[in-house]
């Protein structure tokens, strides 16, 4: 039985619940675990931070245990960090936790770039325009929504933000309008 073709309804933004019963979360396995190289990298980064901390702490002046200087506590913590990082490098040799970067990993990077852009533009032209742009990028390009949904929802979001933060609460967020 054929039905007359009709244009599909544009997807509503809110999906109605389909099933009444509890559905166990579709257990996707996640990206492949980060290999030993990633664990090594992570361990080295924290080790470097720890060593840096030790250096700075010593420069601050450690004092004596009875009269601790301002560098004493950071030194203790940094040494702890170094020790733990070394332990992690040993223990984590086999890899096995964490995740590998996938081919979609550029998306968070773009997201991060838009966020930094917002921070840069915020004091200059207020939050409305950067927020609108960010939202458009995220919805349309990173999220794959249609132009209409993206524009409508972005505008709605910015207006709502304005109403809440500026009109209702009277906060001091930089705003153009």
């Amino acid at each position: 039985m054929t039905t007359a073709p009709h244009p599909p309804d544009p997807e509503p933004a809110v999906e109605p619940t389909v099933e009444p019963a509890v559905e166990p979360e579709a257990h996707d396995d996640g990206p492949p675990p980060a290999g030993p190289l990633a664990n090594l990298g992570a361990g080295l980064v924290t080790l470097a931070l720890g060593v840096g901390g030790v250096v700075v702490s010593l420069a601050l002046g450690v004092g004596t245990p009875a009269q601790p200087g301002s560098g004493m506590w950071p030194l203790v913590v940094s040494v702890g960090l170094v020790v733990l990082s070394l332990a992690q490098l040993v223990v984590g040799r086999a890899g096995g936790d964490g995740e590998r970067f996938t081919r979609h990993s550029w998306m968070p990077l773009v997201g991060l770039a838009t966020l930094l852009g917002l921070v840069a533009l915020l004091p200059v032209i207020g939050f409305e325009i950067p927020s609108l742009l960010l939202s458009l990028v995220w919805m349309r390009f990173l999220g794959g929504e249609s132009w209409r949904t993206s524009v409508v929802c972005s505008l709605g979001a910015v207006v709502a933000l304005y109403l809440v933060f500026v009109a209702a609460l009277g906060t001091n967020v930089p705003h153009l309008f």
Binding site: S131, E145, L169, N172
Partner: peptide, 29 residues
């Protein structure tokens, strides 16, 4: 239930602007 693609930027924006209000400072953002 809102689609993640739409919820994400809204949440991100609320977070960022909310962060500004902590101490009226862009540095916090």
């Amino acid at each position: 239930r809102v689609r993640a693609a739409i919820l994400a930027p809204i949440t991100a924006l609320i977070t960022m602007i909310g962060a500004y209000t902590i101490n009226n400072s862009v540095f916090d953002v």
